[in-house]
Design a protein around this nucleic acid. Structure first.
Lengths: 343, 343
DNA sequence: ATGCGTCATGTAAACCTTTACATAGGTCAT
DNA sequence: ATGACCTATGTAAAGGTTTACATGACGCAT
């Protein structure tokens, strides 16, 4: 019921009155075939509706023109536009995009390697922050294809990385708060050894030091990147009674938790406390007060990463091993000068 | 630099001392091969790290075990979890998932058909609400593969559909408002001929009629599904001075627009006006007031759709041509009894 | 006339599977 | 002893490309 036999290169060759080799050349290296012949071949192609069978082509060429994207959660709003960027660039260059949603499950990660070892994908984008589990199974040792890490670098590896400049972004964010007159600025991080956190905390420290503000360790708290942890961290500060005038959060989700905690305590934001996030995820503009944050150029990150990977596949050594894009300050309504500094 | 020649079935056969046919059978139909032989083959496979070349397999079998997902915008928060559901089910059944982000661009839609006509995908999921442009190009007439439409049915076609029961969901939403005492309920729709809108409006009408409430045409407004259109529709009502006590919106984005408009006019929600959305997208719980809405079971929609498609590919006629899943009432803080009905 | 280089095309191998058909050995009923 | 059937395996074709190598025609310098 399914197959009504698609036209093959032989059908085209027969109609055009040439050999299949000529048809193949007419398609892939048009200059190598005489004008008149090329015309006849094209006509035959049009008449038969021929399209080259990708499987046969991949089998012969040993490349599939497919890229595997490994992500812990494709639904994550932080990934969505990166995905769009990845797909756009790939499609523009004639590549297809395969998605692997790993849910950080080792078994699924290992499973997805079958796309690599069975030649179904030529390269891999890692949004996971680590190499797929099982890449070096006792007996197996799957050869890994060219890869580019996005968003989170792969620690202890020289895998090329594309992402936002976390140090710079965080420094700019802290500078923004400082420029508004804040001097007691809390940093709520997400220390689980993730490189991202380190850089953002360092950016925060750099900005404070540059402004001659002493770092108060009591103002640096740890969370796990969730809204709930932002809320808890804030509560913790009230319990200890060590309060900042502004909160710089590792991400928007955490910042939302801070806002929730402060609002629950009936503080008036941003008059009494300022809050900044990082990422600019979709709800950032809908919270009350709307969130001042650093916007990640997600679309461009995706495009740049795919561009780099395809470059690798085509044999270009990349000029640099990592591409850091600028994040952009998005001023909304969650930041204001601290009360004490008001006239 | 790339290829270090992967092991083929011949290598395995040589080591195991059998023919390649036996190796193939040992892998694909284990019962058809003697225990002892199977053991030797498996050992040889383990030793060589052999994985079957998917390209050769697909070429021979004429099926790729890949599904193409066509979506206007993979980044749309409304799609994200559907995507996860689709991917999860596919992966569980041994299929891979290819994404095609069409951006509603005819050219890109046509382009993605190459995956079909070149045998790179066996089936297709349509999130676009229409057949890909170019499926019946003058000369071309690409044969379309088995398909399932998700979220939005394809009008004037018998393409199987999986989605939420819009009529029922909308009726339940309206009933919820009625149960709180509302009788003047506005409906802000999105009439651009989309089937979704029709059904939701009908559900609204059905609930009102069942409660013996006359339909006031002045309370039925049109929008285009965006936040801005929700704001405008609300303003329009104030201009005409025809006001409801509650707004039932075609989706959460629209509802957000209504909330913005009302808040800007300094009304106290939900005391003075109630607002309901539809979808339960991620920011729904973060808005102030948090949005009472109908939750779409997106994950399950994705899974059900993929299940149906794979069923079709395996030759099962589906029992029904459409699967409608229930949406769930999520009660938050944007709905309260109308002032007039308070004690 | 000969030889050489170039250009357009054809021939056939290779890419790696799956599977229809053939073969061979064994069991069992007649 | 014969034939029928079953099981386990092997042989070889087919699936649709790309491309190294071969062929032949032609122009041109010798």
């Amino acid at each position: 019921m399914q197959q009504q036999k698609l036209a093959t290169i032989e059908d085209v060759a027969a109609i055009a009155g040439v050999s299949i080799a000529t048809v193949s050349r007419a398609i892939n290296e048009p200059t190598k075939v005489a004008d008149e012949t090329r015309r006849r071949v094209n006509e035959a192609i049009a008449r038969t509706g021929y399209t080259t069978n990708a499987m046969a082509r991949s089998l012969r060429m040993r490349r599939s023109n497919m890229i595997l994207i490994l992500a812990p959660d494709v639904g994550d709003p932080n990934f969505s536009n990166i995905l769009v960027g990845l797909e756009t660039e790939a499609s523009k260059r004639g590549y297809g995009v395969l998605i692997g949603n790993t849910q950080n499950d080792a078994e699924r990660e290992a499973d997805y390697l079958r796309f690599i070892s069975s030649n179904q994908a030529d390269g891999m984008i890692l949004l996971t922050g680590h190499l797929p589990y099982g890449h070096a199974q006792p007996g197996q040792e799957t050869r890994l294809p060219p890869m580019v890490a996005v968003n989170e670098p792969v620690p202890n590896s020289d895998i090329p990385f594309v992402g936002v400049d976390n140090f710079e972004g965080s420094r700019l964010a802290a500078e923004h708060l400082i420029s508004q007159g804040h001097r007691r600025i809390a940093f709520i991080g997400h220390s689980t050894s993730r490189a991202v956190n380190q850089l953002r905390e360092r950016g925060y420290r750099a900005a404070l030091e540059a402004a001659g503000i002493a770092i108060d360790p009591l103002l640096i708290l740890d969370g796990d990147g969730t809204t709930e942890s932002g809320r808890q961290a804030t509560e913790h500060m009230f319990v200890r009674d060590v309060l900042p005038t502004a909160f710089l959060c590792i991400n928007d989700a955490t910042a939302l938790g801070v806002i929730i905690a402060l609002t629950a305590r009936r503080y008036d934001l941003p008059r009494q406390f300022s809050v900044m996030g990082f990422d600019d995820i979709s709800f950032a503009s809908f919270v009350t007060p709307s969130l001042t944050t650093m916007k990640q150029p997600r679309l461009r990150i995706g495009e740049a990463a795919m561009d780099m990977l395809l470059g690798l596949l085509e044999g270009n050594r990349p000029d640099r091993n990592s591409v850091l894009l600028r994040s952009e300050l998005i001023v909304r309504n969650s930041v204001a000068p601290p009360r004490s500094s008001l006239p």
